[in-house]
Nucleic acid binder design. Structure first.
Length: 826
DNA sequence: CGTCAGGTGCTCGCT
DNA sequence: GCACCTGACG
């Protein structure tokens, strides 16, 4: 065995150029090399941001193969996202060539687990054809169970229960293992409903995302023989982003690595930002205890960012108590300081960022960057709006990353439900989703009847519907519509089942061929034309039918047509309808990459692809979470304000732990930047439609002053006549923004009152109350409409001509004289 | 059955 | 401020 292994490895090596063989090791720095060459036994690679961990991981896999330690298909490589898996695969392919094709076990926890689970489904009471539910299906199922349990869903929302169950599954608790301490959850009925939910999933032959891992762990724990098989198969295990693993994933890994301990985990405790969805930083902090004798390698040399950016990031992350501790360093010596700037409000901030981006694009700020090189990273998705609005008005191309996922969109999910019915007519959730979509005149009542009949007979909803039709329980107009619906599904399913069936295809092809062979040249011109038309008339249904039998794409199109679903959107006059039709076209196009509908459905249930090839350069807007693993020459980090970032909710819910995670998020944000990192905050922001005055984030205070350049917002000093040279302004701004005793005091007073202290009353409101009179022509400021001049007055009402919003009638106490605007918390 | 008006409640979002 | 859900009407 080992002989043939080494032979094949040598054969491989011989095929590759000699230089290339050594390259993958010589390219590495000493730490990376150590992590790559420690092949046997447990290894923990602590890889800071931008330290070349993917490179090291890839080199390690190549080394394993070249050293004949394992065949590619004996290496288990786990990532968190499909994107990461794909990237690694491409890089390995580039270096290993065809041998990389054998890397069958590289993927996400979920995709690998599905593969394993399909082989042993019966061990957890499922058929191997189980379907994978997404959060939407999950929620609908839970709502039904909640209703059945006579619980008021308003007081006890389904989302709450879904969150609880997810949490339990993340911790690898099957219903019988949920500890007693959780008994009070969901009005004391959480565990009971969890059990009911699992039962229901089993009857539906379905799993949710949590189950995929949980079932695997259960199987490994209860069936030694199965576990041992997989342990033998995977001789080496590699895990990326180990700091993001939850308990279930941890157990999954530990069970598989138990026998040989050949496990290499790569991660960065400072980049653990998924605690809220069950990730346990503890997993990485505990690694050495879990795997005694582990080799721990720290990758600290950074190849991404300038020294100032690194220093700023280090300064912030230093504030966290619970960390393994790394210090990033770089050989780079040049580079700009991190830039910090305060703005009046969110819109102003967006305007400034827009201008900066345009300046950068034109090479005005000493950088030669394209829009693709720039990104805006926000804490919460609602912050994106201000930027989108602004960029739309100035015509700056942008793209939002991680918005509503393609496959989560309504029209995609609807279409998928139709496909699911065609592939497995017994899919009740799919049936429920589309039985009355487009509207077929089948409402609650019809569904209740079908559901009842189906439940009583213990058959699928589709068969239940058949039953209802047979016994006239659903009749009239609704009955006719239901009949068409049922017959359509049967028909589509028939095409799925008879895909490429030669007994059906061959005669069709023969008939088409014979029709085509007909020669009309001997006929008169008029007769010939008529004959041609007749031929086309007979040919087209045959060709259509052949298409449905041989092409899943043609079938998919037919399904969407025949169901009336496409037409529903064609008829729809709302502005989003055209976009939805576009998406449906894209969906059909995506089918091309698959051999059949089943393969496609499997893929989509585990994957979200939102990347369509784009031509125009665009600036990216995304959340900090979505930015992990990415890098950009220029990064903008807006909204660094108390309550927004760090997020109030995070601190309320998880206290100090929550704050530390927020701080790691700040660290992730800063370390995304290669050349230019710009942090900003606004003094006023609209939160849920309410204007609030904001305090700069405590993280701003934690930035080491030596590595920060404080900019003054040009619009502020211009409008307020602060005048003076830039350096003066910078000092003024610096004094005001960054070190002002005023805001430190505010900050301190807020801290003593705890993180949930009520907001300071807006200075503007207070000042406005002190103002007694205005004159015509006086320049005033309104929090919402900005600057304007008073054109008329009546009692306490002013008619104001706003610079941006035009004429408005405003009660005097909502505005202040423009010259008082400087009295804001910075 | 479908539509509209009013009330409510709200991170981050991987698989 | 907006999106989503529910309940009252046509």
């Amino acid at each position: 065995m080992s002989e043939s292994l080494s032979l094949s490895a040598r054969a491989l090596a011989a095929r590759a150029p000699v230089a290339a063989e050594a390259d993958y090791l010589n390219d590495l720095n000493p730490a990376q090399r150590e992590a790559v060459e420690a092949l046997d036994g447990p290894v923990l690679m602590l890889a800071g941001a931008g330290t070349g961990k993917t490179k090291a991981l890839v080199a390690r896999i190549i080394h394993l193969v070249r050293q004949s330690k394992a065949y590619p298909n004996q290496i288990l490589a786990v990532t968190f996202t499909n994107k990461a898996a794909r990237e690694m695969k491409t890089r390995i392919l580039g270096q290993l060539g065809e041998a990389a094709e054998g890397m069958a076990w590289m993927g996400t926890f979920h995709s690998l687990s599905v593969k394993i689970l399909r082989r042993h489904a019966e061990l957890v009471g499922l058929k191997s054809s189980f379907t994978i539910l997404d959060t939407d299906d999950q929620l609908r199922l839970l709502k039904q169970l909640i209703a059945a349990a006579n619980i008021d869903e308003k007081r006890w929302p389904a989302r709450l229960l879904a969150g609880l169950i997810d949490g339990w599954k993340n911790r690898a608790w099957t219903p019988d293992r949920v500890p007693a301490s959780e008994a009070s959850a969901y009005n004391n009925r959480g565990t009971e409903l969890y059990e009911a939910y699992q039962d229901r999933l089993k009857t539906l032959n379905a799993v949710d995302f949590g189950d995929i891992l949980l079932h695997c762990v259960t199987i490994f724990q209860r069936h030694r023989d199965v576990l041992e098989d997989w342990q033998r198969r995977f001789r080496y295990i590699l895990v990326d982003e180990y700091q993001d693993t939850n308990v279930a994933q941890y157990l999954w890994l530990r069970l598989l690595a138990q026998a040989h301990h050949n496990i290499c985990c790569v991660g960065d405790d400072d980049q653990s930002i998924y605690g809220w969805r069950g990730a346990e930083v503890g997993n990485i902090l505990r690694f050495e205890a879990d795997f005694p004798g582990a080799v721990v390698v720290r990758l600290e040399q950074n190849y991404r960012s300038t020294p100032h950016i690194l220093a700023a990031a280090s300064g912030v992350i230093k504030g966290n108590a619970n960390r393994l501790g790394k210090t990033l360093w770089t050989e780079e010596t040049k580079g700009e300081k991190v830039r910090l700037i305060g703005h009046w409000d969110g819109e102003e901030e967006a305007r400034w960022v827009g201008e900066q981006i345009e300046d950068l694009q034109r090479g005005r700020l000493g950088h030669d960057l394209s829009l693709e090189d720039m990104a805006i990273l926000v804490r919460a998705s609602h912050q994106m709006r201000a930027f989108e609005d602004r960029f739309l008005t100035i015509g700056l191309p942008y793209r939002v990353i991680g918005g509503p996922r393609f496959y989560e969109r309504q029209e995609i999910r609807d279409a998928m439900a139709y496909f699911r019915l065609a592939v497995s007519p017994g899919d009740d959730l799919a049936f429920e989703r589309v039985y009355n979509l487009p509207k077929r005149g089948l409402g609650e009542k019809a569904f209740a009847t079908i559901n009842q009949v189906a439940r009583a007979a213990e058959v699928s909803l589709l068969d239940g519907a058949r039953e209802c039709l047979a016994h006239g329980q659903v009749s009239g107009k609704g009955g006719a519509a239901l009949r068409t619906f049922v017959e359509s599904i049967d028909r589509w399913n028939w095409f799925v089942l008879n895909r490429d069936n030669p007994e059906l295809v061959a005669p069709l092809e023969a008939e088409i061929a014979s029709l085509k062979d007909l020669n009309f040249s001997h006929l008169e011109e008029d007769d010939r034309a008529e004959a041609e038309r007749e031929r086309a008339r007979r040919l087209s249904p045959l060709q259509f039918r052949l298409g449905l039998l041989t092409s899943h794409i043609a079938l998919a199109e037919a399904i969407l047509e025949e169901s009336g679903y496409t037409d529903m959107w064609v008829q729809d006059k709302t502005p989003e309808a055209p976009g939805r039709l576009e998406n449906l076209k894209e969906l059909v196009k995506a089918l091309e990459q698959f051999e059949n509908l089943t393969g496609f459905l499997e893929h989509v249930s585990l994957i979200m692809e939102n990347e369509s090839e784009e031509q125009t350069e665009k600036v990216s807007i995304m959340t900090l979470h979505a930015a992990k693993g990415l890098e950009f020459p220029a990064v903008f980090l807006p909204g660094w304000e108390e309550g927004l970032f760090p997020s109030q909710r995070s601190m309320d819910e998880s206290g100090q732990k929550g704050l530390e995670e927020e701080r790691r998020l700040a660290y992730v944000g800063i370390t995304r930047a290669e050349e230019l990192c710009t942090i900003s905050f606004a003094s006023n922001r609209r939160v849920y439609g309410q204007w609030q005055s904001q305090l700069p984030s405590r993280f701003i205070d934690e930035l080491p002053a030596d590595h920060v350049d404080v900019l003054s917002a040009p619009s502020l000093h211009n409008s307020y006549g602060m005048g003076g040279g830039n350096s003066f302004d910078a000092r003024v701004a610096k004094a005001d923004v960054y070190n002002s005793p005023g805001w430190r005091r505010l900050q301190n007073s807020q801290q003593t009152r705890g993180v949930s202290a009520p907001r300071e009353a807006s200075h503007l409101t207070i000042d406005a109350q002190a103002v007694t009179g205005y004159g015509i022509g006086e320049r005033v400021f309104h929090q919402k409409f900005g600057y304007g001049n008073i054109v008329a007055m009546e009692g306490d009402k002013l008619e104001i001509d706003f610079e941006h919003s035009g004429l408005k009638n405003i009660v005097a106490r909502w505005v202040i004289p423009a010259h008082q605007v400087t009295d804001v918390p910075f």
